[in-house]
Write a protein that binds this DNA or RNA. Structure first.
Lengths: 201, 201
DNA sequence: CTCTGTTGTGACCGATCGGTAACAGTATGC
DNA sequence: GCATACTGTTACCGATCGGTCACAACAGAG
């Protein structure tokens, strides 16, 4: 009894990160798991090992927090694109196949689908600040996929990219209603088939 | 001034239908437009031209109302399938092309996507009564699509059906974040391409 | 006309929502 | 040691949430 506990338990969420980053990380996770409207700010602060005041000092409102979470998610996706280019430099076809593989893995491991698309479902007000972020993020994602299809020398690169895009989006949303054994299970096969179909012979 | 107004305005929602049906119809619409968690029961009853007590006398809870709305949506979809068969009897290929056309029209006209898939995004609790309805509805939908692809004598009918399914789901969810000019705009072309690719030559 | 089942009304419940005020504790840099 | 900036605590705000109560109005059937 002589030793006073000065250090708090420090669970995973309340790690070495500063409160702001813990809040962002935790909020993103809880928004994704329970839906944006399905989780309250208090629950987020508790899970992040902090409190409401700290949240509202860093983020002016729940909506602002939502926007930052969305932006962070998009930035992460863009980083993955960069990583892909670094991993297979000057080999766009390998990049494309790797993108499909990563997509399939993402579908298999995450039952809640795409956090950006899910946010678009929940944020119905047309002037919600999050909508701009969502739209620009998805547009950028499409741009990069089209670019990759072009570099991979696919015939009709835009159509190929849009097809891959719809298959991917479809797989992630379908997983939430049809389960992991539904149509989404064959995403990889379909996507690789699309690439093959648009390859220059 | 001599004429008393005995008949209420009777707007579209408060039509000749009975309160229960008005509630169901209105709730479905508002759930779709604002999201399930984005609309309250009071707003639903007002839009339906009735009151909370009447709602709770017909539906025990908001969750029960949600379930009935989902079931109604699924029944409607199944009716459309029946209609399709009646319209092109013994011509499965024409049914398939008509299904694609109807899908494209649905994508173009409804910016909020699939109410069932959207519900799956919002109802995150795994034991929510609505989830069973969603899963069974989507499974039945897939079953019918596979059946149609088989009757249309496509090679690999299951793979073709799953591909069409993902393209359709993807188009409807993508429209909500990428807009009507995004990848979803080419759904018809892609889907018809899939049918052509799996046709027996 | 009366009886019965269906609606409508308005007040009300406890819980939770997003958000704030005031104040106390703590870490850091000089 | 001291000032400053950040963080934590508690209590609180008004609004809204899903849901219920008792009671009045109303319809149609017998």
């Amino acid at each position: 009894m002589g030793v006073k506990i000065l250090q708090k338990p420090e669970e995973a969420t309340a790690s070495s990160l500063k409160p702001r980053d813990r809040l962002l990380h935790t909020a993103r996770d809880l928004f994704h798991q329970h839906g944006i409207k399905g989780i309250g700010v208090e629950a987020i602060t508790e899970a992040a090992g902090t409190n409401k005041m700290t949240l509202y000092r860093h983020f002016g409102s729940k909506d602002d927090l939502i926007v930052e979470c969305l932006q962070k998610a998009i930035n992460e996706t863009m980083s993955k694109w960069d990583e892909l280019e670094r991993e297979y430099p000057d080999n766009p076809k390998a990049q494309l196949i790797a993108w499909i593989g990563a997509g399939a893995q993402c579908i298999a491991s995450d039952k809640r689908g795409c956090e950006i698309a899910n946010a678009a479902v929940e944020l119905t007000e047309p002037d919600h600040p999050g909508r701009r972020v969502i739209e620009e993020g998805k547009k950028e994602h499409r741009r990069r996929l089209v670019g990759l299809c072009q570099r991979a020398d696919l015939t009709q690169p835009e159509l190929a990219a849009d097809t891959l895009c719809l298959l991917f989006e479809g797989a992630r949303i379908s997983r939430q209603s049809d389960g992991p054994e539904g149509p989404c299970a064959r995403f990889k096969r379909m996507a690789e088939g699309v690439v093959a179909a648009y390859e220059r012979k």
